[in-house]
Design a protein around this nucleic acid. Structure first.
Lengths: 366, 366
DNA sequence: TTGTACGCGTTATCAA
DNA sequence: TTGATAACGCGTACAA
C-alpha cells in the first residue's frame, strides 16, 4: 500500500521535457521563466503530485525551516501554553517545531540540544531551562540563534522573554495588605530559577515598604509543583503562628497549599488566604476560584518565537529583552483574615465553602 | 559569536589522512576497520567537535529519525499527556518529535500532514484527528506509517490505539444506578469522533440493560470542551424534569457542567451528581474531587509510539489495534440523589460542600 | 529564456 | 582493511 517512490524534481523535468533548473526556477516563482513554461511545469508537478523534499532543500540551503523547543514537561498545564504560543508563529512562518522534554534535568537538556543542533534547527527556544552552566553555555554560544524564556543567565546578554516579576506581585501584596493580612507566607520557586529569585527580592522589598517584618520562617524554599505545594501547605499550617495568607509559586503550587490546608482542617479562604501565579484556565472555575497573578504564557511563547525568527532572518539583529506585564486577578481565594472577619463583602464571603466536621479553626492572626 | 562552520566528515578525513568512507565506517562502528584507525578517527572527531549532520544523513538514508505528531491543541490539559507519552519512547529510540497543532480543523491538519511528509518523517501519530475524509485518507495511505489515537476510521484497518469506551463507562453507570440515580443525562462528544459514538452506544445499551428508558432529551449533543460543558449544564439544569446525574464527555467538560449547575443555584453533588472522563491530575484536588472514568493517556501515547516504531522498522508488520483499559475512579462528585438522601455513606456525603443561599433544591427523581 | 554542472554531507557499493 | 566514486534531491552560478 505504501506508495511507490515520491516524485522528484527530476520526474517533473522529464515529464515536461525541460531542464531541472528551469523546473526549479519555475516552482520557486523566479522571474526568469516564461509564463507558458511556468504553467506547463505547474500542471506537470500537480499531476505527478510533486512536492519538494524539505530534507534535500535543507541540506542545500543550510536552513532547515525547523525550530527546536526545549521544555521541562509538555504535559504540565502551566507550561504547555508556552509551546502553543511558539507553535503559532513558527507554523505561520512555514517552519515546524521540534519538541523536547527535559524534565528539568541538565543532562537530558544537553543531549536534546545536541540532537537539535545536529538536525540543524534554525533556532531554539529554551523554556525555563538551564542556561548558565559551562556546557550549556558552550552549546548555546557556538551553534544557532536562541531565545531564553522565563529563566535567564545573569552573566550574559541573551535574547530573553519573561514576565514582570515585580508588578503583579506588588499588586498582590498591596491587595492582601489592604485586606489586613500582616503575616504572609511565601513559597519560593526552585533556587536555580532566575524568576524565582527575582520574585523573592520583590516580595522582601515590597513587604519592607509596608514595614512588614518578614521572618525567615515565612519563606518556604519549594518549587513550582503541586507536591511542593502540599509540603509548603503542611509547613505553614503546622506553624505556631500561622500566616493568614500564602503567596504560592504557581497556580498548581497554590492548589497544593490549599489541599494541605483543607487536610489540616482549615478552611480556605476563611482560615487561610492563598494567591497563585499563572492564571491557568481552571483558576476561574468556581470551585477553585483562585486569586492569582496572571502570566501571559501563550503571548510569551509568541514573543519568543517572533524574536527568534528575527534573529534567524537577520543574524546581526541585536539581542533583546522582552518583559510582558503581569497583573493581579482577584477572585475568591483571598479574603480578610479571620480576626477582623465579620466581613461585609458578600461576594467574597459567599464563595467560601464550609469545611468538613473536624474544624480546628483556631484562627490566629498577629 | 556564532561559530565558524561546523566540522564535517571531510574535515575528519583530512585531519587523519584517511578516506571519507573509512571515517564513516569507523564512526558507524562497522567491523571492517582496524582498531588502530578507529581510535585515530575517534580522537580526531572528538577534537574537531565533529557530529554527523542529521540532514545529510536523512537525505542519504531516506530516513529522518523524526516522528510527526498531530494534535488539536497541546495546551489543552486533556491532550498534552498523549504527547508526553509519545515523546518518551520517540526520544528513547533516538528520534525527535515534530509537533503540529491542528485545532481540530481539517484544512490545518492536511497542511501540516503535507509538510510532515515533505520532511520525510518516518511516521506519524494522529491524536484525535480526522481520518476518514478522502483527502486525509489519501495522504495517509500514500505516505508513511501512521498510528491513530482515540479516533479511528470505521472503513479501514489501521493501526489504532484507544481506550475501552465500554468498561469504565459501564462501571460508572452501574455505580450511579446502584446509588439510586434513574434519570441520567449524557453529554455526547463531537459527532465525528468515533469514541464519542461508541460511548453513546454503550450508554444506551447499558441503560437498556437496567430497563432505564433514556429519553432523547437526556442526550445532549456537545463536545469535549469547558464551554460545551457550560452549555450542557445550562441545558440540563433548565429541564423541567432535571436529571439527577450527568455523565460528561470529559473532565474539563464535567467542570463546565458543574460550573453551570452552581450558577443555577444548584449544589453539586447534592442536587446534581457529575461524572467526568479522563482523570486529569486536578481531578483529585479536593475542591474538585471529581468522580471520573480514568483514561491512561500517557500510556496510550507510549503504546502508539511503540506500535509506530515497529511499523517503521518492519514495514510488513501487520496493523494492530491496542485498547487500553478504563476504570471508574470514585471520588466525591456523585452521591445518592436528593430524594432518598439521608445517606449513610459518610465518606461521600462528608465531602459535599454547602451551596450558597439561593438553593432551588426542587430535586426531582423518577 | 533555458540548460549544464556543481556542491550541500552522508552512506553504500565495489574495487584495490 | 582501506579508498574512490556514486548516489540522495535540491538550488544556483554560469554558460548557451
Amino acid at each position: 500500500m505504501r506508495d511507490k517512490k515520491r516524485a522528484t524534481i527530476k520526474d517533473v523535468a522529464q515529464e515536461t521535457g525541460l531542464a531541472l533548473s528551469t523546473v526549479s526556477n519555475a516552482l520557486a516563482g523566479k522571474s526568469n521563466v516564461s509564463d507558458r513554461t511556468r504553467a506547463r511545469v505547474e500542471v506537470a508537478a500537480e499531476r505527478l503530485g510533486y512536492r519538494a523534499s524539505a530534507v534535500a532543500r535543507a541540506l542545500r540551503m543550510q536552513r532547515s525551516f525547523t525550530i527546536g523547543v526545549l521544555i521541562a514537561d509538555v504535559s504540565n498545564p502551566s507550561s504547555a501554553d508556552f509551546v502553543r504560543g511558539v507553535e503559532d508563529v513558527v507554523s505561520r512562518e512555514k517552519c515546524t517545531l521540534l519538541l523536547c522534554n527535559t524534565d528539568g534535568d541538565e543532562e537530558k537538556q544537553l543531549a536534546h540540544m545536541r540532537t537539535l543542533i545536529d538536525r540543524q534547527v534554525d533556532g531554539m527556544v529554551l523554556i525555563s531551562q538551564h542556561c548558565s552552566s559551562p556546557k550549556v553555555r558552550e552549546l548555546l554560544d557556538s551553534s544557532v540563534p536562541f531565545v531564553l524564556v522565563q529563566r535567564r543567565s545573569a552573566k550574559h546578554k541573551d535574547n530573553y522573554v519573561g514576565s514582570d516579576n515585580c508588578e503583579g506581585l506588588r499588586q498582590a501584596i498591596h491587595y492582601v495588605h489592604s485586606l489586613g493580612h500582616r503575616r504572609i507566607g511565601f513559597v519560593q520557586g526552585p533556587e536555580d530559577s532566575s524568576s524565582a529569585r527575582e520574585r523573592l527580592e520583590t516580595f522582601l522589598s515590597t513587604a519592607d515598604g509596608f514595614r512588614l517584618k518578614v521572618e525567615q520562617d515565612l519563606i518556604y524554599h519549594g518549587d513550582y509543583t503541586f507536591e511542593g505545594g502540599l509540603e509548603a501547605g503542611q509547613y505553614f499550617c503546622a506553624m505556631r503562628r500561622r500566616p493568614t495568607c500564602v503567596l504560592a509559586s504557581s497556580d498548581i503550587n497554590a492548589l497544593g497549599v490549599i489541599h494541605s490546608a483543607l487536610d489540616a482542617g482549615l478552611d480556605v479562604p476563611k482560615d487561610l488566604s492563598v494567591v497563585g501565579l499563572d492564571d491557568i484556565s481552571l483558576a476561574s472555575f468556581r470551585r477553585i476560584d483562585l486569586t492569582t497573578i496572571q502570566l501571559q504564557k501563550r503571548d510569551m511563547g509568541i514573543a519568543a518565537a517572533e524574536l527568534l525568527m528575527k534573529q534567524v532572518w537577520q543574524p546581526l539583529f541585536r539581542p533583546q529583552k522582552i518583559i510582558l506585564p503581569t497583573k493581579l486577578i482577584i477572585r475568591g481565594s483571598v479574603i480578610r483574615p479571620a480576626q477582623k472577619s465579620r466581613d461585609k463583602s458578600k461576594k467574597l464571603s459567599a464563595r467560601g465553602s464550609v469545611g468538613d466536621g473536624s474544624i480546628l479553626s483556631t484562627a490566629i492572626a498577629e
